[in-house]
Amino acid sequence: MIITFRRQWEVLPRSLQIILGRLALVVPQMFGVLLVTFFLIRLLPGDPAVLLLGNMATPEAVEQLRDRLGLNDSIWTQFLVYCGNVLHGDLGVSIFTSNPVTVDLMERGPATIELIFYGMILTVVIGVAVAVISVRKPGGTVDIVSRFYGLAAGAIPDFWIGLILIYVFFTLLGWAAAPFGRIDVFLNAPPPVTGFYTIDALLAGDFDAFRSAAGRLVLPVITLAIVNAGGLMKMTQSVFSGVWESDFVRHARACGVPERVIMRAALRNSLPPIITMIGFLVGFLLGAAVLVETIFSWGGLGQYAVQAVMNSDYPALQGFILVAAAFTLLVYLVVDILYELVDPRIKV
């Protein structure tokens, strides 16, 4: 049986093997995430029932609530109930906002993801373009600028850049949109489809909303890109320059292959570490963009998580951890799949 399975497996195309193999791993990984989130919260000191009811609650009321929340059941029963709830999309009710955590996260998750999404696109464009040009024309303007930039980008904090951008482009010049949230307060948010205001607005044909949402994105996206593109550029530079000096590039040139084509091939060879770094950045920014979110009143996930911590809002925190972990898992899944797809030398 196993042998026939293996044989069938081996005739599958490599790309399918990679994707199926990785997807199969997601289930146990996700289970692990659930387990960790659940017990992490249980490890925190304090009785949730007391927290919910406040210090003035009578012991009877606390006992009643404990019973209702199932806290008196065995830990494994609680875990099963928790898993069941999660599968039904029930993450509990936030103590602070009084909304179901799922609703809060559905509102705030897309805000952060939209920000990160455009931020990463700009980061990649800047980082890779500067790196490639500086390698191809060593000693040129771009190369020299890139050296200063690489040095500075690691040292300048994101909130500082955000504030400077706001000061210059909003306060002084008045070019940029106000840093007060994702969309003009006088406009209605487009009906949610993807959760991305820009895309939803286009889908709804609401161009005013689109213009406003896009305008609001400009400064925070630039802030994120400026901070993160430096590292990506440095790394791309070192990888790409290694590839650029390699024998196969020289041989392609000796074969009369145009520079444009050679550059594309060299870039493809440099992809794996770039993909890894982008994946890492995306996962990292989910929580780490909090300062940028705060400055631009973005109302994103990072802010939500910080609020939850400040207010001992355990259900909200638990929900955030779960979503962040699931999202990171997803990003790494995509990274792993892409990584193996772009490098045929990796054995599946």
Partner: peptide, 23 residues
């Protein structure tokens, strides 16, 4: 560029290094 590879073709040492590894 047209002459390289078009009229004179170079065959180098260590062929494995001369080929693009991901194509």
């Amino acid at each position: 560029r047209a002459m390289r590879g078009g009229q004179i073709a170079l065959i180098g040492t260590n062929a494995k290094a001369l080929l693009d590894p991901v194509e």
